[in-house]
């Protein structure tokens, strides 16, 4: 009976039930904040001893913690992915590894990214300041050049 259980477990692993393939681990903090709408996600993964197969990572993003409406945003061998152009909101990411033999790891612990762009009030204040400083710079240079020619 025991032999049968071991056999079944091994079969589940090789069939991709995620029992044996190690999970990738995010290098990012569990909770991240961005006020510019971009960030780099990176992860590590350690192969099981004696297994030299390169994994394919599946990176998913969801706007709900349960990943009910998850979308796979990257499938490939890289250990990082740069994400940009995000709107304000909460974004959850999770990742898993798939090996050429068909086995897959379980999903990693998710990381949360909160995107909250700078306020438009601050933005327009800085734009106004920039316009004034630039205009004054042009005046200093053009007037100075005219006076000294």
């Amino acid at each position: 009976m025991q032999v049968l259980w071991v056999f079944l477990l091994a079969l589940m692993g090789s069939a991709g039930f995620g029992q044996n393939t190690p999970k990738p681990i995010f290098e990012n903090d569990r909770e991240n904040f961005s006020n510019s709408g971009y960030l780099k996600l990176s992860w590590t993964w350690e192969a099981k001893a004696g297994n030299a197969d390169a994994p394919i990572f599946h990176l998913q993003r969801s706007q709900d913690a349960a990943f009910a409406h998850a979308k796979t945003i990257y499938k490939g061998p890289d250990f990082a992915s740069f994400r940009s152009g995000l709107n304000n909101g909460l974004y959850y990411y999770r990742i898993r590894a798939a090996l050429p033999d068909g086995s897959t790891s379980g999903w990693s612990d998710p990381v949360l990214v909160e995107v909250k762009h700078h306020s438009l009030a601050l933005t327009f204040t800085l734009v106004g300041l920039g316009a004034v400083v630039f205009l004054l710079t042009v005046i200093i240079v053009v007037q100075g050049a005219r006076r000294t020619t």
Binding site: N35, S36, G37, H117, H118, S119, L120, L122, T123, L126, V127, L129, G130, A131, V133, F134, T137
Partner: peptide
Amino acid sequence: PAAVMAIFNNLM
């Protein structure tokens, strides 16, 4: 916001 701020920042 970050992009709009970057305009005059990069200029200066």
